[in-house]
Design a binder for these strands. Structure first.
Length: 406
DNA sequence: AGTCCACAGGAAGGGCAGGCGA
DNA sequence: TCGCCTGCCCTTCCTGTGGACT
């Protein structure tokens, strides 16, 4: 791109009336000064944690609710205010879903210890040693520590509940520090499979976060939009539309905020200064598109090869089963010189693609003809086309002679 | 009622890379 | 450098299974 055109872009950007005033307030890191429709839950959390102000140990709390129901933000809201009142109250927040950061017992303890200012190697130490390090780090002075484990269900599903057992018993050995745990789970039935001892000590208090309805989402968006955008930017009905779309997704406030933010970004990019309903549609499309594309691009080669097989079969419009995928997968690997994994492993890779929401895999029985998984592509044609391009670039699929018209 | 298909998916363990202390 | 520890990816071996067919 030539220098002049860059200047033009920057100049015209600066000349335009800005869409955003404070974009941060539409992200999920932002802790607003009030959180509509969560007063009851916030009070409950605050009452449970209040004894920390007197240096007493507080009950462990378990928060349940689907994605975007305000669990994390409510907890952060309370702990932020609590920490402001006392220097001796420290909050450790960790999201257990962070791949390669906190999704195993070792990594979780390492990350926690690191957040306390110690240097910890990424691997290499025995778990009991890292446990000791963590223990010593938190027990170094008289204080209350509130440990927030977000998406705790992901951790337990992956590594078992032993770590929770250890953490919930740690208070017996701590001399100075009082530790309490706040577990946050998106999976409502999560505690059913926990060790009863862990369950009882972890859920001394249980708080449910029901999904927001469209009206509640509207209140939340109004409040945030007031801070986020400059006056007169929003067209009538934009907030309502974002709320309605997010309400369809199990009342997910995060999605509602994302829609609003991306709509604003798209408007800015087009050099306009009004967010219209049309831009909400575009934002929704972009949200889906971006998520899937980044997921697919970051998949390892083997997983992409499996996906390439599925796309090949989808294009043939046949019903797709594990065995079909495996034979196409084998031929792709042979052609490209990739190591061929066993069917057992490929079966797991198929399950992973299912978990990512790219495909739908359902176990079916064909009676005499065996049991298998029936696989369906979940994505629409434009996304599949884009994925195809990515796989072509990675030499996992042949280039189409020409793209078919729709 | 029994058989049998084509897998599903659990359990155990091998091999590797990254990292530690001695 | 060596022995030991970890997580991760993968294989091998295995048991389980829904329902069409005999």
């Amino acid at each position: 791109m030539k220098q002049t055109s860059l200047d033009q872009i920057f100049d015209s950007y600066m000349q335009r009336k800005a869409v955003f005033n404070k974009k941060d307030s539409l992200t999920d890191q932002y802790v607003p000064s009030k959180i509509p429709h969560r007063e009851e839950q916030i009070n409950q959390i605050a009452q449970t944690l209040a004894p920390a102000l007197r240096g007493e140990r507080t009950s462990n709390i378990f928060l349940f609710g689907t994605v975007g129901t305000g669990k994390s933000v409510s907890v952060r809201y309370v702990t932020k205010n609590l920490s402001a009142r006392s220097e001796n109250i420290k909050t450790l927040y960790i999201n257990c879903k962070m791949k390669k950061v906190s999704d195993t017992e070792y990594r979780l303890l390492a990350e926690l210890t690191r957040s306390l200012g110690l240097r910890v190697p990424a691997t290499g130490l025995p778990t009991d040693q890292i446990y000791k390090m963590f223990f010593n780090a938190i027990d170094s002075k008289k204080q209350n520590i509130i440990l927030i484990l977000d998406e705790i269900d992901v951790l337990v599903k992956k590594t078992g509940d032993e770590i929770l057992y250890n953490l919930t018993r740690i208070n017996q050995d701590l001399k100075n520090t009082k530790l309490s745990i706040i577990g946050i789970s998106n999976d409502v039935s999560f505690t059913d499979n926990l060790d009863p001892r862990v369950k009882s000590s972890l859920s001394e208090e249980e708080i449910i976060f029901p999904p927001y309805n469209a009206t509640q989402l509207k209140d939340i968006l109004k409040e945030r939009a007031r801070i986020a955008f400059n006056n007169g930017v929003l067209d009538n009905g934009v907030i309502e539309k974002c709320s309605a779309l997010a309400a369809q997704e199990h009342g997910d406030a995060r999605k509602a905020l994302d829609l609003l933010r991306i709509a604003g970004e798209l408007v800015e990019r087009d050099g306009k200064n009004r967010i219209t309903l049309e831009y909400v549609d575009k934002a929704e499309e972009k949200l889906d598109f971006d998520r899937i594309i980044s997921v697919v691009s970051s998949q390892p080669k083997q997983s992409q090869a499996v996906l390439a097989s599925i796309i090949t079969l989808t294009e043939k419009n046949k019903s797709i089963q594990t065995g079909d995928i495996y034979s196409i997968y084998e031929s792709i690997c042979k052609k490209r010189g990739i190591k061929i994994l066993t069917q057992r492993r490929v079966s797991d890779l198929i399950n992973e693609l299912d978990m990512l929401g790219i495909i739908n895999a359902r176990v079916i029985s064909k009676g005499r003809y065996g049991r298998t998984k029936e696989i369906r592509m979940l994505l629409n044609k434009s996304i599949v086309r884009k994925i195809r391009e990515i796989l072509e670039e990675n030499y996992l699929l042949e280039r189409h002679a020409q793209t078919k018209p729709n």
